[in-house]
Amino acid sequence: MEIFNISGMRVIELLGNNLTGTLPLNIGSMLPNIEGLFLISSMHLFGTIPHSLSNCSKLIYLDLGNNRLTGLISNSLGYLTHLKYLFLEGNYLISDTTLSFLTSLSNCRHLKLLEISGNPLNGVLPISLGNLSGTSLLHFKASNCIIKGEIPREIGNLSSLIDLDLSGNGLIGSIPTTISNLRFLQLFNLSHNKLSGFIGDDLCKLQNLGYLHLTQNQLSGSIPNCLGNLTSL
């Protein structure tokens, strides 16, 4: 895909078309002033996410979801320090086993939404997940990503979350008690994993919870009576 003479553009929105080809390798120099790039659901964009995209230092909205993009999610996305919304869902993107790109995104202190669902990441959630912008991150969606290992306790640092979806992965271990720190959480989906242990009373502290999905795990014991106090559930 070739685009010319658009260096002054601030927003490009090409949703739901049949675009084909790859993103220009020099996209960072072509769009120095871009603040919003929306190429969602074109279904025919392939290739990798160019490293030069990290030079788009004014970028606030980046939506490349539901295409056929491949390759590593680059740690260079962490240079986009003004980024608020990042949509990469529904591609074929991968990462290293430590999902280090999540660590790099801790530099994006204004990040509100991170949507990476449906990519074969095949890694383990890092402890540094808790360093994502805890005071601004509202939505974290990473369903069906072949994520393994345990949910780190540090996830409780994301105190502003209202939507947490880690369903359809291979997560093991128990539900961290630190989930109780997510007092604004409204949607919590851990279904279709391999989680074990009990459903603790910690969930009863989530007074804003409206949706709780724990289907298809290996949880045991009884359902806490105090869940009945969650009037929004």
Rank of each mutant, 00 (worst) to 15 (best):
N119M: 06
N119L: 09
N119Q: 08
P120E: 06
L121G: 07
G123K: 05
V124G: 07
L125C: 11
I127M: 09
L129A: 10
L132P: 01
L132C: 12
S133C: 15
G134A: 09
G134I: 07
S136K: 14
L137R: 07
L138N: 14
L138A: 15
H139V: 15
F140T: 08
A142Q: 05
S143F: 08
N144H: 15
I146D: 15
G149P: 06
E150A: 14
I151S: 07
P152F: 03
P152I: 08
R153N: 14
R153Q: 13
E154N: 14
E154H: 08
I155S: 07
L158M: 02
S159E: 06
S160F: 10
S160Y: 10
S160N: 14
I162H: 11
I162G: 04
I162R: 12
L164Q: 03
D165H: 03
D165T: 02
D165G: 00
L166M: 03
S167L: 02
S167R: 12
G168M: 02
I172N: 02
I172K: 01
S174V: 12
P176Q: 02
P176K: 09
P176D: 00
I179S: 01
S180D: 00
S180P: 00
L182S: 04
L182W: 00
R183Y: 01
F184C: 08
F184M: 08
F184L: 09
L185G: 05
L185K: 11
L185P: 05
Q186P: 07
L187W: 09
N189Q: 12
F198A: 11
I199F: 05
G200Q: 09
G200D: 06
D201W: 11
D201F: 12
D201V: 13
C204P: 10
L206I: 07
N208H: 14
N208S: 12
N208D: 00
N208V: 01
L209E: 00
L209N: 04
